[in-house]
Design a binder for these strands. Structure first.
Lengths: 200, 200
DNA sequence: TCCATTTCTTACCATTTGGTAATTGCTGCC
DNA sequence: GGCAGCAATTACCAAATGGTAAGAAATGGA
């Protein structure tokens, strides 16, 4: 059983356990409980992981980039933020309060995620007593990072924002479609193309 | 003693205790401990409450509006967000990690706050065991609100953003200088003035 | 490999926003 | 009330961005 567990987490769930180990030691028994609560899922660029409504799942990104976005009334897309490897992803207020949201989650490039549900996570919190506090700590830091990144763009024109994006999120800049970056920076793909041309 | 406590919290600290009571009952003994950790402070519009560096204080706003802002290299001001009555205010990552920040906290209009320090707050967490979890819950909700409000502006032009600001934060719109609102929306005061003219 | 589809780029012009400066309006102080 | 200082508005022109459309490049499938 332990061998099977080892094999299993080595192939797919290792990133999650390894990530949690950065914060505190995770005994193997707890690791098994945690691993059992998640399922593996593969996504292709453009796949929709969550399509609005009440969000009942939480994801951990093993590979690739997700984007949180909305569809506007006039048919455009607006990207709220990007998330990458070793980050948890959900629509947090919808997940916490079980209220509907207009936000979607899509794969901004090919990706692999671990999926759990709210019910499984709450049960897991009962099994692993320190896990809720740990997750809350991780979530608070993630929220602060989201705010810090967005704040950095404020007060700059589009060219400066794109340069800042290249510095703040260089790995994302090279891996997702230009149109997604434009929708993230609040400009049209044409404007971003012009800005890229002027920079080189 | 109890009478003095009652008088004291009735005059100045009532807003904080009342606010916490919205989340869970606060026994009077705990209320006394909490009250003892905060000091009252009055601010005039434009006063600087925190001037960058390492943030060692946390504020609870009893009256008025604070703004979190930065000074840019070229001498402009950029407002990251506004906070109003019944909200806690600090530079959270600086406060938590005791690292320097470039963000400032100023009074966007005349205001009254309750002030505590990181040391007093940590001591208070030992005295009132449920308080840290309660504060973490309040903080998480506040961070989600900050993100939600900013996300709503994404993908709209300046006119739509100002209209949205009037809807999302109507009480703030009427109480702070136009220049602060412009710096919050990322446009010049002249542009905002033109937008206001076109709307009426 | 070729073709079809999509994405990205470029160009043109209309619209919006920024920069400078002058004017008006408001507030507080004497 | 009058004056000084600051905030807000308005106007003018330059610069940046959006909208439409067309062309170039990359992608994916037969």
């Amino acid at each position: 059983m332990v061998l099977i567990y080892r094999l299993y987490i080595c192939t797919m769930l290792t990133p999650l356990i390894s990530y949690l180990q950065l914060f505190r030691p995770i005994p193997e028994a707890d690791g098994q409980h945690i691993a059992a609560a998640f399922k593996h899922r593969v996504l292709k660029e453009g796949d929709t992981l969550f399509n609005g409504g009440i969000c009942r799942e939480r994801y951990f990104i093993c590979r690739g980039i997700l984007r949180i976005m909305v569809n506007t009334e006039d048919g455009r897309q607006v990207t709220h933020y990007f998330l990458k490897e070793n980050q948890f992803c959900t629509i947090l207020n919808s997940f916490n309060e079980q209220v509907p949201t207009g936000e979607l989650i899509q794969a901004a490039c090919d990706a692999e995620v671990l999926v759990t549900t709210r019910d499984r996570l709450l049960a897991l919190y009962d099994q692993v007593p320190y896990l809720k506090a740990l997750m809350d700590q991780i979530i608070q830091q993630a929220l602060l990072d989201k705010i810090r990144i967005r704040n950095a763009y404020l007060g700059h024109d589009a060219t400066a924002q794109y340069k800042l994006f290249l510095i703040q999120q260089p790995d994302i800049a090279t891996r997702v479609p230009i149109s997604d970056i434009a929708s993230y920076l609040g400009i049209t793909p044409q404007s971003l193309s012009r800005i890229r041309k002027n920079i080189r």
